[in-house]
Amino acid sequence: MVSRTKSPKPTKVSTTVSKVIRNYQQDKDKLIQILLYLQSTLGWLSREVLTEVSEQLQVPITQVYQIASYYKAFSLMPRGRHIIKVCLGTACQVRGSPRLLDTISAMLNLKPCETSEDMRFTLETVNCLGCCAMGPVVVVDETYHTKPSPSDLRKLFESAK
């Protein structure tokens, strides 16, 4: 895993993919790690990227897609510049995260898993971030916010351009 980097300069997909695969010594066992790396640098996994991975790593396209569509960390659609994750784990649930999700959903006019048309926000839900004592928890661009009030959220969203 790597930290989120700024949007990379446009390079050919095949070059990007081959570089990453080389970093992982062409090791097929590292398929998930390779996809995680690509997800974090590209923000999402396009059909083109996954086809390249399949060809260059010589893993069936079916296996690549099975993995890419199975795990929550991967996105098969472009995502917004700001990712908002609402935790729906049990502890957060008991402390009112569904209502928090409703509030955020109404504020951003987005349903869970949707991205705003201007590509500013993507709203997602997660099933437990392990931050259970502090719930309900919302993560905005990797920063954790615990028990945020509607006005906290409004400020946060306004400052995210």
Binding site: M1, K28, D29, L31, I32, Q33, L36, I67, A73, N127
Partner: peptide, 25 residues
């Protein structure tokens, strides 16, 4: 090995599949 977000991946056979680079089921 870094997981990629799947509850069921904690099951032993699933986790070992994931370590092999296969889907964690």
């Amino acid at each position: 090995h870094c997981g990629a977000g799947a509850f069921v991946s904690g099951e032993s056979t699933a986790l070992m599949s994931a370590i092999e680079g296969k889907v964690g089921e």
